[in-house]
Amino acid sequence: MKQISEIREQIISGLAQARPDAPDINGSTRIVQDLELDSVAVMDFILSVEDRFDISIPLDRVADIVTVDDLARVVEGLCNAERA
């Protein structure tokens, strides 16, 4: 089982690389609005998260993701479903 806290940390560190000048990213940070990522950057970021965790996130679930925590929960669900 992958812990959600560990997933969240890895997502935050990935986002910090995509937006080095962004102040304090945490679980409630909104990925698009707060970090001002354009849609190409968001897509690249999601693709890199998929690589990092060896999952594919279905598009309808991408559409529901607003915050870092939302993304962490989706990743956790997919990681643990695949390894169950």
């Binding site: 897509m43 693709l47 690589d51 060896d54 999952i55 594919s56 996130i57 279905p58 598009l59 309808d60 695949e82």
Partner: peptide, 21 residues
Amino acid sequence: AEVIRFRHSDPEDLYKRLRRL
């Protein structure tokens, strides 16, 4: 259907995603 994307014109990325499925 469930929809996923692969990196633009990247057969290796496509391969990875099909492998996961």
